[in-house]
């Protein structure tokens, strides 16, 4: 297990290994290629940050992994999602249910709507315990109270009987984290868990997750808009654009040596360590790409200062920057290199 910011050298088998994931939405206007040959892995205890502007395919990627997308219109068309030696994409709906909430916990963006308003918080935490861990009701209640205490909710035993509307946004997100961690999953996927919260609460939730990670040792995928957050907690970062992974590197490497024009633009919008965090990713000029049809060119070309002929003709593949195999060290999906003088 590592602490935030430290990169764990290669060695351990990944807990989660995603290869060539493709997800399309069938719409009236045609097929939307929301996720395009996305590959990444997660080592035990590692925290992988996923950044990219809104619509870049972060959520769809993660929901595809455990079959959370409504089908139709979504269709996971290709790829492998290896977790504990099994390909999740090949599991029956029933077997997949046994994975969701048990091996993979999910925390969503909006804590105000993610909990069911008509059931008590205790009821909602106990559900996965009873289903996946085979606990009796009293056992589940006991464990639910422990979980609430673990995520920092005071007076846990009594709070089990409260309804979601009796909690603040930050407290609800803590409840969501308790639900996601209830069955001690190998992987926690947190999809912009602090975006909907105000800044002080954000910081508290981030501290909580750091703390839980040390205590429990699960691997985490942390999706965010905010590169500032990533710098503080991630071991590795994956940058997504237009449904593709455009750059991937250990966190220090990415911040000191960004290679993709999009990553560079992103880093420019993050103010230095002075602390103001006004700039969001949307600041980059131009529109996000429409993902209709299979990509044949670089999705970033319309907004890229370095774009040249090849970018129109060929979608760049990920290639290693530092000599390590793609995915293991630093890699980028771009035709341009700072060394070569393309223009």
């Amino acid at each position: 297990m590592t602490l935030g910011g430290l990169y764990m050298p290669d060695g351990a088998e990944p807990v989660l290994d995603v290869r060539g994931l493709k997800t399309v939405f069938k719409t009236r206007g045609g097929e939307v290629h929301a996720v395009n040959s996305v590959s990444f892995h997660l080592r035990p205890g590692e925290l992988l940050g996923v950044v990219g502007e809104s619509g870049s395919g972060k959520s769809v990627t993660m929901m595809s992994l455990i079959g959370l997308l409504p089908s139709p219109p979504a269709e996971v068309r290709a790829g492998e999602v290896l977790l504990g030696g099994r390909d999740l994409l090949k599991l029956s709906p029933r077997d997949l249910q046994a994975v969701r909430g048990a091996k993979v916990g999910f925390v969503f963006q909006d804590p105000m709507t993610s909990l069911n308003p008509v059931f008590t918080v205790g009821n909602q935490i106990m559900e996965p315990l009873i289903k996946h861990m085979g606990m009796t009701k009293p056992q589940a209640e006991q464990r639910a109270a422990e979980l609430l205490a673990l995520v920092g909710i005071p007076d846990a035993k009594k709070r089990l009987k409260s309804y979601p509307h009796q909690f603040s946004g930050g407290m609800r997100q803590r409840v969501m984290i308790a639900i996601a961690l209830a069955c001690d999953p190998d992987v926690l996927i947190a999809d912009e868990p602090t975006t909907a919260l105000d800044v002080t609460i954000q910081a508290q939730i981030i501290e909580l997750v750091k703390d839980l990670r040390q205590k429990l040792g699960m691997a985490i995928v942390w999706i965010t808009h905010d590169l500032g957050v990533i710098a503080g907690i991630a071991d590795r970062v994956m940058v997504m654009y237009g449904g593709q992974v455009v750059e991937q590197a250990p966190v220090r490497e990415l911040f000191t040596n960004p290679r993709h024009p999009y990553t560079r633009a992103l880093l420019k919008t993050v103010p230095s360590l002075t602390g103001e965090r006004a700039a969001r990713l949307e600041v980059i000029q131009g529109q996000p790409p429409l993902l209709l049809g299979a990509p044949v060119a670089c999705p970033f070309r319309a907004r890229c200062a370095h774009a040249f002929d090849r970018c129109e003709a060929e979608n760049p593949q990920r290639r290693a920057v530092d000599g390590l195999p793609v995915g293991q060290g630093h890699d980028v999906a771009c035709h341009w290199t700072p060394e070569a003088a393309h223009g």
Partner: peptide
């Protein structure tokens, strides 16, 4: 959203 949460918990 809470329906997605229920599914993410592995409920049938």
């Amino acid at each position: 959203d809470y329906v997605r949460t229920a599914r993410a918990k592995g409920m049938g």
